[in-house]
Each structure stands twice: as C-alpha cells, then as structure tokens.
Write a protein that binds this DNA or RNA. Sequence first.
RNA 1: GCUGAUGUGGCUCAAAGGCAGAGCAGCGCACUUGUAAUGCGCAGGUUGUCGGUUCGAUUCCGACCAUCAGCUCCA
Length: 586
Amino acid sequence: MSKQDLDSGSVKTFWHTTSHILAQAVKRLYPEAKLAIGPATDSGFYYDFDVPSPFASDDLVKIEAEMKKIVKEKLPLERFTLPKAEALELMKDEPYKQELIAELDGEIVFYRQGEFTDLCAGPHLPSTGTVKAIKLLSATGAYWRGSEKNKMLCRIYGVSFPKASLLEKHLEALEEAKQRDHNLIGRQLEYFTTSDLVGQGLPLLLPKGAKVMQILQRFVEDEEERRGYLLTKTPFMAKSDLYKISGHWDKYYDGMFVLGDKERDAAGEEVLALRPMTCPFQFQAYLTRTRSYRDLPLRYNETSTLFRNEASGEMHGLIRVRQFTLSEGHIACRPDQMGDEFRAALELAHYFLDTLGLHGDISYRLSKWDENETEKYIGSKEDWESAQDFMREILRDMDVPFTEADGEAAFYGPKVDLQIKNVYGKEDTLITVQIDFQLASVFGMTYTDIDNVKKHPVIIHRSSIGCYERTLALLLEKYAGALPLWLSPTQAVVIPIGDRHIDCAKEIAGKLTANGLRVEIDGRSEKMGYKIREAQLAKVPYMLVIGDAEMQSGEVSVRSRKDGNAGTMPVDDFLEKALIEIDEKS
RNA sequence: GCUGAUGUGGCUCAAAGGCAGAGCAGCGCACUUGUAAUGCGCAGGUUGUCGGUUCGAUUCCGACCAUCAGCUCCA
C-alpha cells in the first residue's frame, strides 16, 4: 500500500487485521495448527504457525481462498479483555499464546472475529469486509521467538489492500524491483558470475565488475591518503596464536576458515587461519616500534581481503559472500583525540556515500552489546557503557538521526553501523565505525604520553565505503545497472556504420583512450540499429556513431543512453564534456 | 545450520518412464547499413552431481552440490 493511500499506522492496522484473517483461515482448514504470532511488517504481514507438516504452495492457494470467504462474511472485530487466569484458560489449547500471556500483566486484550479469537493488543479494522485484495506471497520457516534454539515454525507472508488495483500495482512494483536486483542484472550485464566448482559465496568478478572495483579502490585509497591514512598490506592468514590474543579463536572460531583444527592446534602443531578481520594484523604493524603521544593519531588503512565462513543459507549474490574486500582501517589515538577521529571517520564515510549517491538510502544504528549475554563480549561493563555513551553523544552532536540496537555490537566494542536496504527492502550493514577500549591492552599496544607514562591508545575500527562487493551490488541496484559515467566499465562505444568507417572510428577511439576514457569499438558487420540496441542494453553511457558525414566533418554523432541522439559535435567537445562529467562524478 | 522452492545448451523457457525442442546469444555466408533487433545456414545437451528403482530414468526415489525466498547469524 502506498503511503499516499493511508498513513503508516492505518496501513499496519489493515495488514494486522489481515494477519488475523489468515490465522482464522488456517484454523478452519487445519484445526490442529497452533498459533504463534502474526504482526504487520513494513511491507505486509505474516503469521507463524506450528503445524505437523509445513505448508506447500497448494496450501497457500487454499488458504487464500478461505481468507476471501472470511472477507465476504464481513465479520466484525470485537475487542475484549480478560484477567490473566481466564485468558490462560481461554487459550488452553494454544501453548504459544499461553507462553505470551504468562509474561503479560494486568488485563489481557483479545480480539474476536466470528469463531476466531486471538490474543492481540490491536488496533484492528472494525470488520474483515474491507480487506478486498489479498495475496499470500510465501511460506517459510521461522524460529519461535527468533531463536534457533527454539522450534521452527511455519511462517506465511502476505500482503493485502482495500482494492484489487492497489494489489496489482504492488505486485508490479515487486516485479520492477526484481529487475533491479543486482543478482539478476549483475549476471546479465556480466559484472560477476558464480561457479558450482568454485563454491558458495565465492562470486567471480568478471572484467566489468573488476573494473568498477578497481575504480572504487583507487578512489578510496587516494582519498584516504589525502586524509592522513597510511596504507598497509598485511597477510591473508596467521597462526592461531594471533587469533587467540585477539579473541577470534574463542569468540569467532566457527566463522573462520582454519587450515587445520583445534585438535592439531592443541597438539602444538602450527595451525593457520584465514583472516576474518584486519585488526590484529595492523596492530602488529603498530607494535614494530615504541610510539610517542606525538605519533598519534596513527591511521592505518588497507584494502583488505577477508574470509568468513558464513552459514550455508546466508550467501546472497554479492551482498553476503565468504570472501570479500573491505576498506578497513584502524586508528590508534589518544583519548583526547577520540572525538575528532571518530567524527572524521564518519565524515569520510559520508563523503564516499554522497559521491556514490547512496547517502540518502542510509540509516544509522548505534549497535550496543547485550547486557544479558556478557560472555559473548570482552571488557568491563564500565568500558562498554562509556564507549556507547560517547558514541551516542557524538551522533547527537553531529545531528544524525539514529536508532539503538542491543546485541548488535562486535565482541570487542560497540559500533555505529550505517545500514542500507537492498531492492527487496532487506537491510544490511554497509559501513561500520567502532570504538574499542579493549584490544590495545590485549595486544600490549602503548604510547608514551607527555608525562612519560605508558598508556594504551584508543582504537577506532572503521570502514569507509563498505565492502566493495556489497557496495557494487547496491550501486547496481541503485542505478539499475546504468552506473554513473565515472564508474562505467565502458564509457563509450564507437559505432562505425560501415567497414569504410572503421579506421576513422579507431582514430577517434584512440584519441579518447589516450585521454583516459574507457572506449570500445563495435566493428561488427551489423546494422547500426542493432549495435545501438546492444550498447543501450549494456547500459553504455555514450554511443558515438561514425558514418560518411562524420568522416567528412571530423565530428562524432553522440547518443547518450539516457537522452538518446544528442546530435553531432567535434570530438574534442565530446571529450571535454565527458571529462567534466567524470570529474564531477555525476 | 534450519524451513520451503528450484536446477533442461551461454541466456530465457518448452516437452516428457521409450530418438530432448524453440527463441535469443555463438559460428559461417551474404548484406555496408544513419540512432533499440537484416536475411539464410551451421553448430551447440551424459537434462547440476552421485547412487537406487526399472527391460529402459533426463522424468520416480535418496544423498550431495548450487541458486532463490525466509529464519538464525553477519560487513
């Protein structure tokens, strides 16, 4: 439902009531089903059921049909409350509802529609009759209360509208989103591929993808150098000893590719592991000599390839992979420099996001530890809270809107995560900036302060552009494959109309290439319209047509992928125009 | 890892317990082209992999691998 039709509260109410209709339909068709929870989401609703065998797609068709009957029955929704004991009695056949009721206080709120009653705080529509258009989208598994320790339930996702035309529009929009999916266009446009033989989560970047990656990396490394970073190149693997100090061996073992195992390690054999992070390596660089307070802040950056053994169901295109490249940096600074450095790290990220056109799609999250699971983290409660308070204050001071999330921190410190949504609305972290009071002392990193006392620096862990693979994926989705000129792997294709124009085309392409443009010639014996179509579909920004007229005048006929035929102009004019556009990164 | 779905030529998709087919892409020939598809021809397959059932499996069954959606986890 679009926001114009209803405000978001009403939309949620509408979807929430639809989820009750879903549950009612399921209960009618599968009386043995036990009800869990069924909320509205940002894009529809779902309901979780405990059923003997998971729903198949045929079942969804039946359930949808039953839901339509319930709508036709125009059942009124009636709110009522019960004291806890009676509530438990009412839900005596619903163990999940009982579990929820047990945790509630005061009067328990229910909603009733026809023969169906559900535990629910509401609010709801007055009648089931207004839910005219319903589509059940998928049936998947979901753990009860979101914990993999619990039973897996069957979740049905759906969406609904007061009018069929709105549903159609919504489904069309979903279809359009699919056409922007990097996993589709990235393969179609040959940015990347995968191979069953290479393995899951290990995409192969093809020339176009590799070119964009190179452009981004040069851009990032150059900008970071300007901002006082020193580039390191550290190994892809290290002995278990290093990870034992950093804590990864204990806290992150399952996430690492270990060339060996714990048994061999325990037997004293050398066991190497691929790095899941760069921190401990750059810390070793810090430790090469004694540091003075005058050396700080010391900013290391590295275009760092990392390896993380993700669970097999997690991998997704270029967004979740097992090997990826991060612009990773670590800043060692004094406490009095921490504020400026933290802020500068965020500002650098803003600069990159602005340049890429992604800033508007970002939301900020202060990712804190989980006070109830302190064993997952290292360091004292005081350190954690002061770091979290500090980050919160800087975010407020920078006037950045943000949310806070418990249990999302790294094991060594809280983070500010810059979150971004993919084309389906699924959120991932793109960039992260972290403050760490732990690892400097763990690794024995010190500096001699002005008072001649050895102290531990504060470490800021930061990425500045996000993992390159993920960034590429989001750029492809953002621009539907038509990347800005400066990022386009091929910036222009020269199209000679006939064979006799090929030499002239080569000359023009040569001149543009010599001036730094990435240019190709399409010299095939095909009709011009065909070549233009192919270049358009490949999202090449400019097509330069060369025929008799251009050969005579020494001009080129310019076509832009966006605006079509732009008429003829001297080659130098096109070059100048293109160079300006590249320079502006627009 | 868990739940569900899917896997047929480079791509998009047909068919089917008994000789696997089309369009696009590719290659060849002709055409020398004026802003989104020139025509004709050729070639391309151990139907993801490995087992099982069967006279016969690409089709049915099982395991594995990969892809997709979701959960959990995470950059």
